[in-house]
């Protein structure tokens, strides 16, 4: 059995930050990189399936699209127990959109022909929530999005999953492998990778590929892109708290108003 886990090294914006002069992005000095939180859950789900499976020869492969910064995230996955890692990078992937990334991942995942592909529901920086299902679209794999419960029967190659719907409703459904699932946070308790384990993970196989290695054309990224970013701007300023003054009754009335306005819809 083989499980492929695509992960992403995400950027968190510092409280105070500056944009690049040309407005195309954030000054990297103000970004903190980390493995996407959702991906720690999909990773854990993969490791648990492997640990619960009978017999040997099961493999968890972690894949990412990213520059060298992203290796830190791969190392933590390897430290937790992934068997090998693949990092795909090409200059043309700089700023690539969700469909382009999915396209590149599809080329890599196809070569692995896994039984399961486990993605995070979304990344915390871009929050598209679409990479996994787009990847399934390219690969024509059965897919279930936003999975908060997963029971994989390796013998039957069938996953019984819980799909988390709005308002706490849960749909239970069954899907046959090979399949792609996008995993929601809270589905498990991701394990901790000690610093020692991360250091030792450097001994594990970590392959770096470019587009050509995957049999993709040079302009594959541009071809696949679903959008182009024109500008990145801070939202309308709201420096500090707007103070609500007046009597407690007035304050209460404003609070009700604000809450209703924000919660409507």
């Amino acid at each position: 059995m083989k499980i492929v886990v695509p992960v992403k090294q995400v950027a968190a914006l510092d409280e105070e930050f500056e944009l690049l002069d040309d407005g195309s992005g954030v000054d990297p000095d103000f970004l903190e990189w980390d493995l996407n939180e959702w991906d720690t859950f999909s990773m854990e789900a993969a490791l648990q399936i492997r640990e619960n499976a009978d017999g040997d020869g099961h493999e968890v492969v972690v894949v990412t699209v990213g520059d060298e910064e992203a290796e830190e995230g791969l190392l933590s996955c390897l430290a937790k127990g992934a068997d090998r890692a693949l990092r795909i990078w090409d200059e043309s992937l700089q700023g690539a959109d969700v469909l382009a990334v999915a396209k590149v991942l599809a080329a890599a995942v196809e070569r692995e022909s896994p039984d399961l592909v486990l993605c995070g529901v979304q990344s915390s920086d871009a929050v598209y929530g679409a990479t996994g299902v787009a990847l399934a679209g390219y690969l024509d794999l059965p897919h279930v999005a936003v999975v908060k419960g997963l029971d994989y029967d390796a013998a039957q190659a069938t996953a019984t999953v819980e799909r988390e719907l709005e308002g706490g409703l849960v749909e239970v459904l069954r899907v046959e492998a090979p399949a792609l699932l996008t995993i929601q946070t809270g589905i498990n308790e991701p394990r901790y990778a000690t610093l020692r384990a991360i250091k030792q993970a450097r001994e594990k196989p970590l392959q770096v590929s470019d587009l050509a290695d995957l049999g993709l054309e040079e302009d594959a990224v541009g071809q696949a892109a679903g959008s182009r970013a024109v500008a990145l701007k801070p939202p309308e300023p709201g420096e500090g708290a707007e103070m609500l003054n007046g009597s407690p009754a007035a304050v209460a009335a404003r609070i009700v108003e604000i809450v209703q306005e924000r919660m409507s819809g």
Partner: peptide, 8 residues
Amino acid sequence: GEEGLFES
């Protein structure tokens, strides 16, 4: 007990 992190 996170010895590796301490060292780092």
